[in-house]
Amino acid sequence: MAHVWGMILKRLALGVVTLFVVSILIFMATELLPGDFAQEILGQSATPETVKALREQLGLDQPLLTRYLSWLGDILRGDLGNSLANGNSVSELIGKRLGNTLYLALYAAAIAVPLSLTLGILAALYRNTFFDRFANAAALTSISFPEFFVAYILIFWLAGAGGIFPSMSNFRTDPTLSEFLYRAFLPALTLTLVVTAHMMRMTRAAIINLLASPYIEMARLKGMSPIRVIVKHALPNALAPIINVIALNLAYLITGVVVVEVVFVYPGLGQLMVDSVSARDMPVVQGVALVFAGAYVLLNLTADVLATLSNPRLVHGR
């Protein structure tokens, strides 16, 4: 058991290092902007004096390392700087919308994860039947659709004339739970359709990969029922890949919301990011990218740790 904790600690340390390197990458983004950052903010018409003043105000005259360390220090205190577009605090902008994005991702995950695991197991169980072929073709189709296509079709189908659900999720600041569930249903459904297909296919593949193993044949030769063979013998050994797929898709949910948020005018981080990219509002883009990257790294980290813990060879040493 001891060396498993060692492995996990190592993985955690690696996660911290990754976050650190990612922060450097994101910080360097400003440095790579062609031309002068202060000039960029003020526009071509600015006088050299005002540019110089702003440079000093932003600390651009300091050496690179000093600026990075103070930037990192600010972030750790929760200060992500101010938007170039409207001067608002980036932390506040993000804070307002982060919750919305997380709720939407959670909403979709709560439907997608159980649904896709069940479908994946059923497809593996009834492999090569009509159900399996149909589920596979449908899954492949829905993976291939751009999110905005799925979103518009759903709007057309469920929200258009005489529709049941609203096509805009532009709700007031504090919706009740039922109102949230109702208003965010279409975006959540869009995301669900996109990730369920992928997770289902991977779950099925992970299980079917194992079905050729001698120990699966052994279980069948012991007279075990097909369901028991899948659930008791294949599934525990397919956990690691399945956990990874779930993590990958949850990460995708958090970042993949960008397009969906734009379609449904959903007030989340994705919208904010897209608006800021068009406006080249670097501090906001950096802030949002940092949040997304952080969530992504954390999810992958959790998945790796869980996958390690699901492997009896690692947990129970020799």
Partner: peptide, 30 residues
């Protein structure tokens, strides 16, 4: 019949035991 009246011993025991379960659990299963 399988496992109860006719049983099977495979070539590679290392591959034919399920790595996720203890030996005695696999013994008791049938």
């Amino acid at each position: 019949l399988r496992g109860r009246r006719i049983a099977y011993v495979a070539q590679s025991a290392a591959a034919s035991f399920n790595p996720a379960h203890k030996l005695i659990d696999q013994y008791s299963e049938a």
